[in-house]
Design a protein around this nucleic acid. Structure first.
Length: 553
DNA sequence: CGCTTTTGACCAGCGC
DNA sequence: GCGCTGGTCAAAAGCG
């Protein structure tokens, strides 16, 4: 904020009124210069008002101001040398000149023009400052609400899983009190699975479920109360997996925490109870992001290490496999592949949940993909009739952008696909920007015109990132004055999840913009993301691995 | 020297 | 049972 600007702007709507008051109602023929301290002037201090009122500028003995602030102080000097120290720097309004009311030989027209320009500049500065404050507030609010939503989603999934687990336990005890795992006939299995297959495919997305054919393993086969109640924190699950891995394969520490897709088979052995946890579930929920990018990999803020590359069937471009290296044992994986039909489209598929705090630059993508995965998983709860409509899920998740989010429930991995490729010539950002604003007129998401260009991604490099919002990264104090709180969220019921999803999708539409905006936003909220350690997904790193050879390039 | 990438081999699941 | 495919491993090579 301009240090010379005395106006203390708040973010409430009353500011504009207050500013307007200044603009339209100059006090005693004085306009306020930018250095005017509104707080002082309108502090309803009777004392100060009385001081001003003691000077009758319109009386017959009109005191003439010789030079306004010619000494650089805040005093008003009259003919009789009576000095009124207003503490302000004032600009005369109608007195003919902002320099003097005395005809000193300068053309009054020039002076008037000059005064008008100064006044206009002051008004513009007020307006600019107000808009900046509002902009910062909204951005912070968006991130805050989004993160809160993700955290709530995660919590909801956990609660729903626990609830279903209890139901399953009670059901198992009532219907098959003495049943032994695997002791059923095929017919019995089919009967039991009839109508619950789809939900189970979603509920058992974790390591134990991914490779398990639901037709072969009824839900109760490894869902005894003892086993299920063991499902505590994701960390517990991680530790268990690590033990299993260590037992079955003596590997380097780096990979010991990773849960390979073949691990479920090991874990499904009768001697090894299976834990169900949110992380395990999230591990198998995939979020695929389609975005146009010439870069070998989208920048999502995380560090990745390539560990494999394969030619996939039906695609001439190889598929690259990356694992998150921001923390030892982070289970997050991602696959990067060019679209076979349109090689300008980069398909990045995220899988797993980070077990470590994410850098600010990774928060936006993490929040978006986390929200998508959470919504997918929360929708996995069996309905009353045991059926699930994936279209409903897609609509529920991103109803304002039905053609950019699809959900595939095909085994073994339920996948949310966020199609961020542009549907119109104006590019993806403008497309989603439009949708956001349509979705909620009370939550406009204005984007600078330059951001609407499809080549914005290519034109923006990492060093530019800190300047996106005109703020240095990791500077929390700069925004300490912003009122970003849950109260703000509660006061904006119009901000729906639809809007947030669309907004975050728009954020992720551009690979580099994602990280940049995320970093900037995170700097606003101070990196105290409630979902810091559990957001599933993230993206390329500070080093971004962009130097690596990309599959298909 | 340590880290990352490359690349062939290996393994498991699935369909026929 | 066999072959195909996806996913991962790990030794070798590359790089700063």
């Amino acid at each position: 904020m301009d240090k010379g600007w005395g106006l203390t702007l708040e973010t409430s709507s009353s500011n504009s009124d207050r500013a307007g008051f200044f603009k339209n109602k100059p006090v005693f023929g004085f306009n306020l210069s930018p250095k005017y301290n509104a707080g002082e002037m309108f502090s309803s201090s009777d004392e100060k008002r009385s001081i001003v009122n003691e000077v009758d500028f319109f009386s017959d003995k009109k005191p003439i101001v010789k030079k306004e602030n010619s000494q650089g102080d805040n005093s008003i000097r009259t003919d009789d040398q009576f000095v009124v120290n207003t503490g302000l720097q004032l600009v005369t309004a109608n007195a003919g000149s902002d320099q003097s009311t005395v005809d000193d030989g300068v053309s009054s027209e020039v002076l008037e023009d000059k005064r008008a320009k100064i006044q206009q500049l002051a008004q513009l500065q007020v307006e600019l400052e107000r808009m900046n404050s509002e902009n910062q507030r909204l951005k912070g609010m968006l991130t805050q609400v989004n993160s809160s939503y993700s955290a709530l989603q995660m919590h909801l999934v956990t609660l729903m899983q626990q609830q279903q687990q209890q139901q399953l336990n009670s059901k198992t005890e009532n219907t098959h009190p003495h049943e032994v795992v695997g002791a059923k006939s095929d017919e019995e299995k089919k009967k039991e699975n009839n109508g619950t297959i789809v939900p189970r495919q979603f509920m058992e997305l974790g390591p134990s479920g991914s490779k398990v054919d639901p037709m072969d393993e009824p839900s109760h086969s490894h869902s005894s109360s003892e086993e299920r109640t063991l499902s505590g924190s994701p960390r517990n699950n991680m530790e268990l997996v690590s033990r299993d891995k260590a037992i079955n394969r003596e590997e380097s520490p780096e990979s010991e925490s990773w849960v390979p897709n073949k691990a479920p088979k090991l874990m499904n052995s009768p001697s090894k109870p299976v834990e169900q946890s949110t992380e395990a579930t999230m591990r198998k929920a995939r979020v695929s992001v389609r975005a146009r990018s010439e870069a070998p990999m989208i920048s999502d803020g995380c560090q990745w290490r390539k560990y494999g590359q394969k030619m996939a069937k039906g695609n001439p471009c190889p598929r690259a496999y990356y694992r998150c290296t921001m923390a030892v044992g982070c289970p997050v994986r991602k696959q990067v592949q060019r679209c076979a039909d349109d090689r300008t489209i980069l398909i990045t598929t995220y899988e797993g949940a980070h077990n470590h705090p994410l850098p600010p630059a990774a928060m936006a993508m993490a929040s978006t993909t986390s929200a998508a995965a959470n919504m997918l998983l929360s929708g996995s709860m069996p309905s009353a009739d045991g059926l699930m409509n994936t279209n409903f899920l897609a609509r529920a998740m991103l109803p304002c952008s039905s053609n950019m989010a699809t959900i595939s429930a095909s085994a073994p991995f339920p996948t949310v696909t966020l199609d961020l490729t542009a549907q119109n010539p104006n590019g993806a950002l403008s497309n989603y920007h439009q949708r956001i604003n349509q979705a909620n007129p009370h939550f406009q998401f204005p984007l600078p015109a330059g951001l609407n260009h499809p080549n914005f991604a290519a034109s923006m490099s990492a060093p530019q990132m800190p300047h996106i919002l005109g703020q240095p990264l990791y500077n929390q104090s700069k925004f300490s004055g912003l009122q970003i709180s849950q109260d703000n969220i509660h006061h904006h019921p119009s901000i729906s999840h639809d809007t947030l999803s669309a907004a975050t999708a728009a954020i992720t539409a551009d690979p580099n913009f994602t990280a940049a905006l995320a970093a900037a936003i995170s700097s606003i909220i101070g990196g105290s993301h409630p979902n810091n350690g559990n957001s599933p997904m993230s993206g390329p790193s500070s080093n971004n691995n962009n130097t690596s050879s990309f599959p298909g390039n």
